[in-house]
């Protein structure tokens, strides 16, 4: 990873996702922004094929009775409430070129 995060908005966002897959909330915290402000950028990046959902592992987990299920990105609910994002090769290429 680059030592200095890029100063361009999308570059900084891709950089943060590149460090580790994260949810929009976590990204907002990491970048000192708000999920609202980031939502548009994430949409752009996702539709442009720079980031994608990092789908959690599907093989069965004993989430049934778990009280933390709603917040857990591993929960085996049909529709994941969370979107964990990670870079696609296209996103990685762009990030590499920035540094």
């Amino acid at each position: 990873m680059t030592a200095h995060p890029p100063s361009s908005p999308l570059g900084a966002l891709l950089h943060a996702i590149g460090i580790q897959p994260r949810t929009p909330d976590e990204l907002a915290r990491a970048l000192g922004s708000t999920p609202d402000a980031l939502s548009g950028m994430l949409r752009t990046l996702r539709s442009g094929g720079y980031v994608q959902d990092a789908t959690p592992q599907q093989d069965g987990c004993a989430c049934g009775p778990c009280a933390l299920k709603s917040m857990c990105r591993n929960a085996d609910s049909a529709e994941p409430a969370l979107h964990l994002l990670r870079l696609t090769p296209r996103g990685e290429t762009y990030l590499r070129r920035l540094s």
Binding site: S8, P9, L10, G48, Y94, R97
Partner: peptide, 18 residues
């Protein structure tokens, strides 16, 4: 030239919007 217009265009808009 190593440019990816899709993201460069969006970058410029987001930079100005921010």
């Amino acid at each position: 030239q190593g440019l990816d217009p899709l993201i460069e265009i969006a970058e410029a808009r987001y930079a100005l919007a921010g």
